[in-house]
Structure formats: C-alpha cells, structure tokens
Design a protein around this nucleic acid. Structure first.
Lengths: 132, 132
DNA sequence: TTACAATCTGTAGTGACTACAGATGCAAGC
DNA sequence: GCTTGCATCTGTAGTCACTACAGATTGTAA
C-alpha cells in the first residue's frame, strides 16, 4: 500500500484538506511524513486514524472527547471500560439535547398554531416573544 | 418609569453586560442614551426589546433570524405572515436537528450495548468507530 | 473627600473549522 | 529539458455568538 497525498486522503475520507492540516496542527492527527519537497504523505495507519476522527465528528463527539478516545487507542491496548464511559457520557449529552430541543419544538409549534398569518394588529408570535 | 443602567438591565433580563454591549455593537439593540459621563441608560422600549432578543435566543433563533424578526417589528406594523414564516422555518430546522440527534442516539446506544466494558483485545466501540 | 463599585472602550480568546494570499512542488506533454 | 498548470505549502484572518480580560473613567454612599 503506497502513501497518499493530502488531496487523495481528503477524497477518500470526505474530510476537507484544510481540516486535515488543522487536525495535525491541534495534534489529533499525528505528524505526516513529507516528500523531499515538503508535501505530506499518509500511510495506512493515519488513514484509519482520520476515518475514526471523521466518524466521531459525525457522531457529534467534540475534539476534546476525540482526543480522549485517541489517547486510549494510542495507549496500545484500549481500555474498553474507559471508551465505554466516554461514549456513555456523550450519549447522555445527546439525549439532553434532544429533550431540550423537544421542549423548544413544543413552544414554537404552539406559537405557530396561534398565529393566523393574516395581518392583525397584534401578532401572537410577537406577543409570545415579548413575554419573558 | 425611570431609566436603567446596564447592570440593572442585565439583572432584569438575565442577559450578561458584555452581551448587551455586543448586541448594541452588532446593531440588534438600538443605541442607548448616555449620562453626562457616558454610562448607558435604558428606557422601557429597549428593555422590552432586549427581553425579546433574549427570549428568541432561548428558542434557538440565530442572530440573523432575530434581525429579521426585529426589522418586522420595527416596521411599525409587523406583518404576521412574515413573522409566522420565519418561525415556521426555524421550527423545521429544530425538527431536523431532533431527527439527526435521534439517529445519532441510536448509533451510540447500540455501540454502548455491544460493549461489555471489560478489557477485551478489540473494543467493539473502537471497531465501530474505525468502520467508516 | 475618599473609597469602592459600576461602567467605559478596545482587544483578544473560545471551538471547529473555512477562506484566502502568495510561494513553492510535482507530473505530464512537448 | 522545459514549460504548463494543478496540487500543496505556510501563515493569517474570518466565521458565530459570545466571553474575558486590561486599563481608564464615572457614579455614589459614608
């Protein structure tokens, strides 16, 4: 398996080039080897790493959470219970967000329902918004 | 009703002082009158305006959406149908976000369920994360 | 008057990128 | 071997919606 340039890696993973360089800069991607001219070359190990990072971002993990996961992976023998607890914590954040958004949805639905949409002197949505 | 200083307004609305100044700077709050020494003074109209802004932010409206709503309000005779359509659009954004988070929740739940938490050579969560 | 709190302006930092500018590198065609 | 033109390089600044200072000035109660 030969090394990939940053463009090929970007295509493969769907992660934008600038973002890959950014991940290197903030230390979640390991430093890439360079060609004589200074272009980055990626080996299989780093391709896998980027896939993991991208996947985690899709799942809504923060960079800090990813850092934690990666440090467990980098530790050689990832401790399953630690990985699980990071994931569980993230899950409960997600559930909290869903609950918050549901409440918000209810309020917005009610506001929309009360508004006829015709031009009336006092718009019930604006009224609702003014009520603190 | 006498004018309020920025600290009092902050206490009343729960909106932090720096944020009030920021809202003025970006033009969603109207320019406040000043005392001889330059301290901001807020009248009833602006207090109501800030309440509206704060409420909208709680409901997850972006500053740009709020700008739109305020321009309708400032237009004198807020067109109910326009207000309604901004709100409906925001509602559908929220619903989309809820749907996305639900999917995410499912994936995370499955990952957690498959992990025993004991130290095994291949952590199923990490496996799942590596699978692109 | 003298403390001391409140407020002022302006700048820089947050998270997770994105978007340039201006300088090189590299691979293919001639 | 040389040129053309895309790929990549570094570094800085911008995004959103604030937040956090520093250092100066104002307002107010004892």
């Amino acid at each position: 398996m030969k090394a990939l340039g940053i463009g090929a890696l970007s295509q493969l993973t769907g992660c934008n080039i600038e973002t890959i360089r950014y991940y290197e800069k903030i230390g979640v991607m390991t430093i890439a080897d360079r060609t004589a001219g200074g272009h980055r070359q990626y080996e299989n190990e780093q391709v896998k790493r980027l896939f993991l990072i991208v996947r985690c971002r899709q799942l809504g993990f923060s960079i800090d959470e990813i850092r934690t996961l990666l440090s467990l992976v980098d530790g050689g023998n990832p401790s399953c219970s630690e990985v699980k607890s990071v994931t569980e914590e993230h899950l409960s954040d997600v559930q909290q967000k869903i609950a918050d958004l549901r409440k918000l949805e209810d309020v917005l639905k009610k506001m929309v329902a009360e508004c006829s949409g015709t031009k009336v002197p006092d718009c019930p949505i604006i009224e609702a918004l003014y009520a603190a």
